[in-house]
Nucleic acid binder design. Structure first.
Lengths: 226, 226
DNA sequence: TAGATTGTTAATCGATTAACAATC
DNA sequence: TAGATTGTTAATCGATTAACAATC
């Protein structure tokens, strides 16, 4: 896939949504979609959808629209789903174990190659074909395998130290589930965060805002009643 | 908290990061911070930080900066952390259970009031003081309690139906962990998504982009060698 | 052919950054 | 007082939307 220009983060964040919706359409037997259709389904303008795709090439056909399957595959390729990225997981606690057990890495083009923990009670257990190794084996493993991404699911107080260890040993990308800011100014490591609490707090803001608006509305009505 | 203007989503998403960093500074005994300091810590410009805060009021002091504790409390209040929001959780599978077990709702101003599932083997079990109830009890529970947020951790194929049930019974906000698009055009329900796969795919994009850049760089060097 | 829809250029809108008077 | 830093207005930058020629 040729990437001509620097594509904005906003566009990148929409690509997985496109992929999801196209998969859904495909599963429903739809073979053709226009930017107008797709926009209506995702709450985006047709213009925006065409602009987004045009960052990566010309995937449509005038008068027809886009072939669902072909467009889906283009986007999958842009996202690197066909590159066979290899991941390891560090910290098989509750969330780490839930990911190993439930999250289908291979659906998204990733292979979970190994998992590591420090707890002897967990080391040696196997989930979904992946056996948990001791952290003592981590460096050897990293030097023997080409790993693209580390999934970081260690406790918050270990996050910074483990992230440093990973960076120092050639890991270029971290999928960060710890509630800790890992993005370092002088580091080139790619960090993608899943911050549960940030997400919940944002939700809280919108709930609070709505309640305030409802209260203001009720107050206006009450004044009018007087 | 007075909210004069419509605050952009970008600003809202930064508020939890401010909160997190301010908590960290406070824990480290720092009592004062300027927009310049805070910007350097978070990779934002001082201007942006001052603009963001000015959406909600005047929390600083010329020549001094901001009081860490006071600013932290203002932001917490803006996010509704002092409102005692009540949440229920639907679907005590792997991720649902991990949240009940590990995620400290009360740290963020929420109370997890109940959990529901359809599996008789899970119903009746208790995690962190919350006993799992049968889905049959859900509607009665909703009508007896004022619930602000539903945490949706059911399997993907149940997501849309359960979301509809929740909406129809007065739930105004959903924290959505299912990999399903719930944002409906004609609905006023607030939906906040945690899409693991979207996040991983975005990471994949950046990894792929970096590899492409490195390959292009190597190719340029190779040409020069000739 | 007529209608539909693309890819792209131009226009608009919104968000970030810079500048600066006010003031602690 | 002098230096620092705010809150806010103006300038810039970037992203979204609209328009339209090209063409299937």
């Amino acid at each position: 896939m040729v990437k001509r220009i620097k594509v904005s983060n906003n566009v990148i964040r929409r690509l997985p949504r496109y992929l999801r919706k196209l998969d859904e359409l495909k599963a429903g037997g739809v073979s053709r979609v226009s930017s107008k259709n797709l926009g209506a389904l995702l709450g985006l303008t047709p213009s925006q959808i065409r602009q987004d795709f045009s960052c990566f090439g010309e995937f449509g056909q005038q008068g027809y629209g886009y072939n669902v399957g072909a467009l889906r595959d283009e986007i999958a390729s842009i996202l690197g789903m066909d590159r066979g990225f290899k991941a390891i997981l560090i910290g098989v606690g509750n969330i780490g174990h839930a990911l190993m057990d439930n999250f289908c890495f291979s659906d998204w083009g990733f292979t979970l190659s190994a998992a590591f923990d420090i707890d002897p009670a967990i080391i040696g257990t196997t989930t979904n074909g992946v056996t948990v190794r001791s952290m003592d084996e981590l460096l050897d493993f990293l030097h023997e395998h080409e790993i693209d991404v580390a999934v970081l699911t260690v406790p918050a107080d270990a996050a910074v130290a483990v992230a440093k260890l990973l960076r120092d040993n050639g890991i270029g990308a971290i999928w960060n589930f710890t509630n800790v800011e890992l993005t370092e100014p002088n580091s080139s490591t790619i960090v993608e965060n899943i911050h549960f609490s940030d997400s919940l707090l944002s939700l809280g803001y919108y709930v609070a805002e709505r309640y305030d608006e409802e209260a203001a509305h009720a107050a206006r009505l009450a004044r009018r009643e007087q």
